[in-house]
């Protein structure tokens, strides 16, 4: 075993120097422990500072949702506005459209993107050929590492009405080219299925890991009893990964009101905004393009609060029903 006996004479003296005089009360005991751990705090402080500045700083900045923010007055100096911005958002005609778009995209994503990796993992786990399984894993994990820009770029290149491969087939079969990227009714399908294509493999890893931790003795006993593969999936594999499934479902349900900005923004164009405008892209446009800082902060805050409430509710439900929960 390695030790660190290399020139540490200083360290010993250091340690002694930092030991406070012994006293009987608990408070200085704590102080002693804190001083003893000073090196651990030094390791922690840079990250702690980062978190406080870049995560808690913006949380303080959320105050401008309740103010009429003027840059020259600063956050504190700007006049209070109460719930004015929230009311304006709730009353605006875009409100229901945004909620509808956000919810329908994320429910669609959940309905397709959640069960498919589970089924995929169960299928891979039942393969007889380990080599085929290995190839499947290598190939299906790869798209996860491709950037969103390239994924959307591939979609627009493949689906191009003039030069794309998809439309050249449609034309060969005698059909009219379809303008996939600019049709509002196709937006959510493009979004969801490209996501399934990209992340099906990657999302299945966690289920494969859960499956591999099932006691092989269960399968052996079931085979001796004459259970078929389907029966074993039903009675061994699925119960074995159920707690993983529930945890992930909770996490996904908590995110149901947060459709990510990047991909929506990249697929979005002036022709499909009626179905593609979600809360995240709306916040970006009102806030950064139109510089309505307070209003769009209010919209964003409304969204984060709804997300938090959802997460707590879903967690409560699953704790009661499934005895599994995040906390």
């Amino acid at each position: 075993m390695k030790t660190c006996n290399i020139d540490n004479t200083n360290d010993n003296t250091n340690k002694i120097a930092f030991l406070p005089p012994k006293t009987r009360n608990g408070r200085s005991n704590l102080l002693k422990r804190i001083l003893k751990s000073y090196q651990l705090y030094i390791l922690l402080i840079p990250t702690l500072l980062y978190i406080i500045i870049f995560h808690y700083g913006p949380m303080y900045g959320v105050l401008i949702a309740f103010k009429d923010f003027k840059a020259h007055l600063g956050i504190m100096g700007s006049p209070w506005a109460g719930f004015k911005h929230f009311e304006r958002f709730f009353r605006s005609p875009r409100f229901w459209e945004l909620i509808r778009n956000t919810l329908s995209i994320s429910l669609y994503s959940l309905a397709a993107g959640f069960p498919i990796p589970i089924i995929f993992a169960l299928g891979m786990n039942s393969l007889n050929s380990q080599k085929f399984k290995k190839i499947l894993q290598t190939v299906t994990y790869a798209p996860h590492f491709i950037s969103t820009v390239v994924i959307v770029g591939m979609m627009s290149v493949f689906l191009s009405p003039t030069t794309g491969i998809v439309n050249s087939f449609i034309k060969k079969l005698g059909g009219e080219p379809i303008f996939f990227m600019s049709k509002p009714e196709l937006f959510s399908s493009l979004y969801v299925w490209s996501g399934v294509w990209q992340n099906m493999g990657w999302s299945s890893i966690i289920y494969l890991a859960a499956l591999s931790s099932i006691d092989p003795g269960l399968h052996e006993a079931a085979i001796i009893d004459g259970a078929s593969k389907i029966k074993r999936i039903q009675h061994i594999d699925i119960p074995g990964i159920l707690s993983t499934v529930i945890i992930l479902l909770i996490m996904n349900a908590g995110r149901i009101m947060s459709v990510g900005f990047e991909k929506v923004f990249l697929i979005q164009n002036p022709l499909n905004t009626s179905t593609s405008e979600v809360i995240a892209t709306y916040v970006y446009k009102r806030g950064l393009i139109d510089a309505q800082y307070s209003f769009s902060t209010a919209v964003g805050l409304f969204n984060s609060i709804v997300n938090m409430i959802l997460l707590v509710i879903v967690n409560q439900i699953s704790r009661r029903i499934g005895e599994t929960s995040l906390w």
């Binding site: 808690y56 700083g57 913006p58 900045g61 959320v62 956050i75 916040v283 806030g287 950064l288 997460l311």
Partner: peptide, 21 residues
């Protein structure tokens, strides 16, 4: 400290406050 860290996973200031920061 763990609590300070984890809380940021569930709640954040959002785009505009981060931009202003």
């Amino acid at each position: 400290f763990m609590g300070i860290f984890t809380f940021t996973m569930f709640f954040g200031g959002g785009l505009i406050p981060t931009y202003l920061l």
